[in-house]
């Protein structure tokens, strides 16, 4: 059911995404060139010899006017040359590609879980207003919604890892275990074991917002005439709730999701840092602390890319789902 208008819309959104990416790249470029201090130190590894430094200077065109530098910079990005990390002495691109799956694992599973939970519970609360369930869930949700996510993570670690010893304190895999070359299932279980607490932290933090949003939009939808008509026709409650009201109520939640993605990425960075989860967020944090500029730039770029792609995907899905909007 894809029409001309729809394809045009997707194209437009992708174009906007590319522009956003450009803006991000330009921001990075100017930040690192225009900021006080020797711009050279941003790229040059302090461990390098003077000859190497001169060579790199030339290849980056640091002796040329700024427009030329920008051009070289763009060319580098397009050819995926983001420099070498000082810390790892490896190309930045390689490192990012290594760490990307870890971040995606955490981020997507948390997003999906949070959305599903949020919509599901939000539906229930909206339906059973003024009941005990609503009261309890609301209060609990309220707490977690306003709780700083990194603090929650620390508390969870304290309770479940430190005191109870149920879960590992951090990291993604148990290096000792893996050195014994275990089976695939054991590897997966190990990862899941490590994933559990960070996942809970990130999920709990996001789902509350969605739950409340879903509740609000459900309440509005339930007042609409077509729901009353459905009730009058004698449809069972569950059907009305799930098929009629919820479907339409989900739409504003998705909109809010779009606006919140940028915040979720920030949440991901914090979670990874608290749990030392080896993803891009954690690398961003570490590389910034250690003044490993190429890697820091690369991580920021990748995180922006993830944000942009997510926004576009959700936006397009939303336009597809909502028959009311026009693609102008």
């Amino acid at each position: 059911m894809i029409h001309v208008g729809f394809t045009k819309y997707i194209t437009r959104r992708i174009l906007e995404g590319i522009i956003s990416l450009f803006v991000v790249i330009t921001i990075i470029f100017f930040l690192f060139r225009v900021m006080p201090g020797d711009p050279v130190s941003m790229i040059l590894d302090p461990k390098m010899t003077p000859e190497m430094k001169e060579m790199i200077r030339n290849s980056y065109g640091l002796n040329e006017p700024i427009f030329v530098q920008y051009g070289i910079y763009l060319k580098n990005i397009i050819t995926l040359n983001m420099g070498n990390s000082f810390h790892y002495s490896k190309p930045v691109f390689e490192i990012i590609m290594e760490k990307l799956p870890n971040t995606l694992l955490l981020f997507t599973s948390a997003s999906i879980l949070a959305s599903v939970l949020g919509i599901f519970l939000g539906r229930i609360i909206a339906w059973k207003r003024n009941s005990n369930t609503e009261y309890i869930l609301s209060v609990v949700g309220l707490f977690f919604y306003n709780m700083p996510l990194f603090w929650l993570g620390l508390i969870l670690i304290y309770i479940f890892s430190f005191s109870l010893g149920l879960f590992p304190i951090g990291g993604m895999i148990d290096y000792q275990l893996w050195s014994f070359n275990p089976s695939i299932i054991e590897k997966i279980l190990d990862i899941l074991h490590h994933l559990f607490l960070p996942l809970i932290t990130l999920t709990v933090s996001s789902f509350c917002g969605m739950m409340f949003l879903m509740r609000t939009s459900m309440v509005e939808t339930l007042k609409e005439d077509y729901v009353i008509a459905a009730k009058a026709r004698g449809l069972p409650d569950k059907v009305i709730r799930n098929k009629y009201a919820a479907r339409n109520a989900e739409l504003p939640v998705i909109t809010a999701l779009i606006l919140g993605i940028s915040g979720s990425i920030g949440g991901g960075v914090l979670t990874e840092t608290v749990f030392s989860w080896p993803g891009i967020g954690y690398e961003l944090f570490r590389s910034t602390m250690e003044r490993d500029y190429p890697l820091a730039q690369g991580c920021f770029f990748m995180l922006s890319l993830i944000t942009i792609v997510s926004v576009i995907v959700i936006d397009v899905v939303y336009s597809y789902l909502d028959p009311r909007i026009s693609y102008d």
């Binding site: 208008g5 028959p323 026009s326 693609y327």
Partner: peptide
Amino acid sequence: IKKRLFKS
């Protein structure tokens, strides 16, 4: 009239 799903 603005473009809708089917029509220009």
